[in-house]
Amino acid sequence: MDLFGSSSFKAIERGLEGAQLRQKAISQNIANVDTPNYKAKQVSFKHTFQNEMNNQTIRAHKTSDGHIDFGTRKSSPSIEINRSTMYNHNNNNVDIDLEMAELAKNQIYYNALIDRLNGRFTSLQTVIKGGR
């Protein structure tokens, strides 16, 4: 029995991975706000996450290790660089106000996922304790 292999745990895990990658990109943008010719990075995760949720694949039961796995495809968030804009006079396109807002939004998203994960663990703990 795989307690942590359910689709909800995997969805939360993928969400946390995406939030972590977004945090890294935003932090790099904020750190390079005054760096000449630096171009802001953005993580396209929600589109990937939504595709994964909509395209859940059928899992096959393998009776032999020689059988081919299907339904185990894993896509990951991607980092995109916007090279077409210029926000500052030094050819830099980092908007610090936008980055700080995205940082706050990402923190709220991350905290919501952690709360959901804690809820799942609390449910498991209740089951283990026999409902007490």
Score class of each variant (00 low, 15 high):
A104F: 01
N37S: 12
T57W: 09
D95Y: 09
Q50L: 10
M86K: 06
N29P: 01
A60Q: 14
K62A: 14
R83A: 14
E102C: 05
D69T: 13
Q23P: 00
T85V: 10
M53Y: 05
L98Q: 13
R14N: 07
S7C: 00
G18D: 04
G71Y: 12
I79V: 14
I30Y: 07
F9W: 13
A19Y: 02
K62R: 15
V43G: 03
T48A: 06
F45H: 00
N90V: 10
T85I: 12
T85M: 08
I81T: 14
A40W: 02
L16G: 00
R22V: 00
G15H: 00
Q20T: 00
N90Q: 09
E13S: 13
Y38I: 03
S75D: 15
A31H: 09
T63N: 12
V33L: 05
T57H: 11
Q28D: 11
A11L: 14
T35W: 13
N93G: 07
K62V: 14
N32P: 02
Q56A: 08
Q56F: 05
M53N: 04
A11Q: 14
I96T: 04
G66Y: 15
A40T: 07
I68H: 13
Y38W: 05
N55L: 13
Q50G: 04
S78G: 11
E17N: 09
Q50P: 01
L21Y: 06
I26K: 00
L16S: 02
R83T: 15
E52F: 09
S78K: 12
F70V: 15
I30S: 05
A25K: 00
N82P: 04
N29R: 02
S27H: 05
F9K: 06
R59G: 13
A101R: 05
A40M: 11
N88S: 13
G18V: 08
I58P: 07
E102F: 06
S6V: 11
M100T: 10
V43P: 02
S7I: 06
L16T: 00
A25I: 00
K41G: 01
S8W: 10
E80L: 08
K62C: 08
V33G: 02
E52I: 12
E52N: 10
A11R: 12
M100H: 09
G15C: 02
S78M: 09
D95K: 07
F4A: 05
H61W: 10
E102V: 03
L3S: 12
A101Y: 04
I81A: 08
H89V: 13
S27K: 02
S6G: 15
G18R: 05
T35E: 13
Y38A: 03
I58N: 11
E17D: 11
I68S: 12
G5R: 03
K39L: 08
P36S: 08
I81N: 07
I12Y: 03
G5V: 04
K74N: 14
S6R: 15
L16Y: 01
N82G: 04
R73H: 08
E80Q: 10
T63S: 11
N54K: 09
P77S: 09
S44L: 10
S7A: 06
M100G: 07
G5N: 08
P77K: 01
K41W: 00
S78Y: 09
